[in-house]
Design a protein around this nucleic acid. Sequence first.
RNA 1: GCGGGAGUUGCCAAGCCUGGUCAAAGGCGCAGGGCUUAGGACCCUGUCUUUUAGGAGUUCGUGGGUUCAAAUCCCACCUCCCGCACCA
Length: 969
Amino acid sequence: MLLSNPFLESDKTMDWVSIEEKWRQKWYAEKQFESDPDTRRKFFVTVAYPYPNSPQHIGHGRTYTLADVHARFMRMSGYNVLFPMGFHYTGTPILGMSRRVQENDMELIEAFRTLYKVPDEKIREFSEPVKIADYFHQEIKEGMIEMGYSIDWRREFTTIDPCYNKFIEWQFKKLKEYGLVIQGTHPVGWCPKDQNPVSQHDTLGDVEPSFTEYTIIKFRYDDYILPTATLRPETIFGVTNLWVNPDTNYEIAKVDNEEWIISSECATKLGFLNKKVTKTGNITGTELVGKKVKIPERNDKIFILPATFVENDNGTGLVMSVPAHAPFDYQALEDLKKNTGKYANLPSLSEIKPLSIIETEGYGDIPARDMIEKFGIDSQDNPKLEDATKELYAKEFYGGKLKQNTGKFAQKTVTDAKEDVKRWVLESGNADILYELNESPVRCRCGAECVVKLLDNQWFLNYSNPEWKEKVHSWINEMKILPEEIRNEFNHVVDWLRERACARQHGLGTKLPWDKNWIIESLSDSVIYMAYYIIAKYVNAGQINAEYISDSFFDYVFFDKGDLKKIASDSKITPERLESIKKEFQYYYPVNARHSGRDLVPNHLTFFIFNHLAIFPKKYWPEEIVVNGSVLMDGKKMSKSMGNIIPLRDAIKIHGADAIRLAILISAELLQDADFNQEAVRGIKNKLENMLDECTKYKTAKHIVLTQEDRWIQSRLQQLISKATSSIQKMRLREALHHILYEFDADLQWYLRRVEAKNRTDCSGILHEIFSARVAMMSPFAPYMSEEMWSRLGNSDLVSKSSWPIPDEVKIDLLSVQSETLLNTTLNDIKNIIKVTKMSPKKITIYTAAPWKAKAYQKILERVVGGDINIGNLIKLLIADKETEEIKKDPDFVKKTVNDILSNPQDERDSKNKVGLVDEIKVLSELESLIKNEYSIGLQVFSESDQNKYDPKNKSRTARPYKPAILIE
RNA sequence: GCGGGAGUUGCCAAGCCUGGUCAAAGGCGCAGGGCUUAGGACCCUGUCUUUUAGGAGUUCGUGGGUUCAAAUCCCACCUCCCGCACCA
């Protein structure tokens, strides 16, 4: 499968892998990425640590690569950068995988063997969950090293390290102390046989045991309650009848203190939802038909009617009928009206009419009927009814409003009313809650059918706490968030976030300190761990023993609270070391930038802010979040089933890390999805190889007297540096790469063309300077190749240790820039004329504008820059001046010149105004070599005012400054 | 519905933030040429219309507006994509 992917077909031209290996060894030999506090300013950048249940693929590389570029850039800019990495062992999927290995699940084992290339002896160890995590941990780590990520590996940890457990316990005790951890009920998928919650990996066929909350509405018949389960409690106002299945034998059961009539399946389900259910009798559906029940909250009684679409295993086995808004109900009513013969005690049906209670744009009074017609449905057994229901439900849910006949809920949107009505009916005791598995039956691996169980001692993080929310909102508005659009999204998430279950009953992780039956859930133990990187370094060095660590240790390090001597002696750390741990924390915290994928905005990243704000003082709150989109493969989403997942390390082996880094970075700006394809990688490799060749050519040289084109290319280089720098600062890495890699090429080409035409051999030094800056700027992006280029340029040190180039104002020569622009545009004009006339030129003559025109140009320019573009005014002004009075002969000149000027961008106008006119005759003489080189013909340059000029066609009079007249023969 | 993104010349895609160097980068495709026994690969040239003088015309989802100047800013509208939950 993988081999057929064209991406994995190598078009090997040079040995990237060994070049990369060489530089990697140098970096590690120099301990380049190890960061300890010093006198420099620090920069702490982090990325969400990986969950090691499989090797990483190219898509995973994006966030890490972005962060690494950020880290490398800041390092070159003079910061003491800390970029650490940990591994998130916490969670349930690995547990499920290991159980499948124990059960000898060949599908999974084959995947390990062929897809992930895990050796057989390792797979055998996978029956132990931690071994899976350990294996992929190493695998991922190797990949990160190969990718050239500048990570300080001394700070590595896993979330099941004993000291990390202590840290998480400390975190949760703090949260509890602040009243942010609360207890309540929570439904879970559950295996009745194992007496355990089930996750996707515990079920046969890996079915996610997802479920939906239904509202039970209690209809009353005498002392009995006939409950119906609905997703749409707000439609209680539109109920016209109840449905029973005539063929069902219902149970009469005592549910807590009430007598319910329900299907036996429902009785079972209720038992798991903490209800006391005792069966007391039976009653058939047919017996119920024709009876009248009271609708809760409405002064009304309705009939019970028969319908075959009602299923025993769905809900309660009874259904409330809302024919105006539920296609099933509408159709069942129609069916019944057509065929009443079967049932004895059926009431008159003519009075039962759909009761419309929701208004939705684009739908009539009875939307259910609209849908029936639209889908061409003729009976309640028609499978299209499902689709019709789904569509109408979505439309009404998002776009519907309740009508006047819904009492105090009138005018509310369905979205709001749904919750409000539910709460209202619940409060009056006329409702209850039922959970229903979405894809039943879900079978546990033990074979038993799963149910939904209500756990009543579940722990939650109370993200609905209003003060907490408010605090988070205001910090989000102060934080730096890239890209800016995401800020809104964060605020939105904060608003709709509610209590979140923060512990589970199995999986790897830390136990809840006050209730050891629970394991802290993986999204909750990964919110403030960046602080732990400080401690991990000391743990790894054997300087901290988790056994002796207690809460006071963390209080001391993070809050500077407590007695140094006592805590030091309790935790068996020397006071000096404890002090330096604390100082180190104070040095590196807060997190300066957190990089992450977009999918983590609604959960991890928001929790990250929430928890930091809850636990740490303001000075330690995170400063910046950078969010990126995902990676596509040839324009398509990567997925196992498509077979288009490329393991990162395979790709590195074939293309080298740099090509992959660049391909990921160059194809999209932050928020967009990056498209990865063979074409792009090939292009990049070509580009890098060409650049590498160039770097071998140029050597440092003694300074020469700079010519105009030298000063020009140097000016352009300074502009490149400013542009690239500002792009990176905004994390617009694609833009930066475009500047560095591609846009500058046009300039370089022009320079080489000029140099070549003049047969110059003395510009190696200039080119060396240019390439050095360029390579330095490339090094955060393509660190390996940049080192190689750097060394070929004759440097003995590492480019990754060099400084980020700073634009040198002195080297910006605006006059040269103007001059070269003049040359370039004139040359283009010549080319154009030759193209249009299709002539083969023998001789070219160029005429520059007369001095009075130059004067006039400058005056006009000055006025235009000042904002005056009134032609009449300008002409008057020019005539008034003796130097420019000749304008009378050619009044059109003013208009043309104004247009010329206006069609320049603002900064070019300014710079022309600033430096004054270039000496056009002198500059244009430079064309001679270019023309000779390209057309092998001669060139003459005259001024329009030259008495002795050669001008057989009287072209010279059309000359304007920056727009010389041209004669081609 | 809410939140976010997008609509560019045959296709993919840059440009939009910061209006002018924009008939609009780059790639693919296509046409011509070179190379080759041939094909592929590679290299060069061209690729909106018109034009034997550097020009003119019409284009960037639609319709308005602002401006000397709009793919770019503002307003309205149309169409498409993603998310809307306890799942890491």
